[in-house]
Amino acid sequence: MAEPSMTLEIFRYRPEVEQEPTFQSYTVPYREDWVVLDALNYLKDQVDGTLSYRWSCRMGVCGSCGMMVNGTPKLTCAAFLKDYYPAPVRVEPLANFPVERDLVINMDDFMHKLREVKPWIIREQEKPVSAGEYLQTPTELASYKQFSMCINCMLCYAACPVYGMTQDFLGPAAIALAHRYNLDSRDQGQALRKDVVFSHEAIWECTFVGECSVVCPKDVDPAGAIQQEKVAGAIDLVKSVLIPWGSR
């Protein structure tokens, strides 16, 4: 009996060959335990070495293999063929980003925005190492832990129509990470982040479509993080009007 197979329709864009992207169909063996990334690796190794895409860990940790699978942003290492079989699967690069080649997007914009929110612990005054760790209770950890699970896979940007239309939008993951550090009891950097986070291009651009949280493979809930920062931003605004002499 012939081995079962299925079709992958893959977005191809080779700037030295074509000006417009095309779709190329490939047949891959169907295996129940294969994910879309396994099928791509099979194609790259056995069928067409020119196919370009990013991947690394194969287990939903590195955040490299995000692509559009049938129009939905997915980690291809977690998108099982059996969930689509026998229908053909369409694989495209993450939406809303410029495409460098085939399934590889240009992530410069995201990397720039990520740096802008200073996603690290900021202290007004660092204490020397000899003074010991910055301690934290389990309750304090619980307040931000969910937002610290982000793996920077950019699926949320691909799901966000606001980012698709307004490239200036700071975007879900960057705001979620700003929120993660703002909530951290060890951090004192909220005032340094607020010019970026409380701006029109950041929290106030979000219309709460909510799809970023639906596609997030780590249940970070970036949409929730943005709304929570809106509350913080509104309180900050009211405070600055009522207590203009306040330190910040």
């Binding site: 864009y13 700037p15 030295e16 417009e20 992207p21 129009g71 939905t72 939406a95 809303n96 410029p98 495409v99 460098e100 240009n106 129509p161 698709g164 239309m165 219309t207 709460f208 479509v209 909510g210 799809e211 639906v214």
Partner: peptide, 28 residues
């Protein structure tokens, strides 16, 4: 050779997914 390609966003993007449509209805 680098020539990053920008895909245009369809004006009917909100018809492509149920959640987008429900969001648009909420806005309307």
């Amino acid at each position: 050779m680098r020539e990053p390609y920008r895909r245009p966003m369809s004006p009917t993007w909100w018809l492509n997914k149920r959640n987008y449509l429900l969001f648009m209805l909420r806005e309307l």
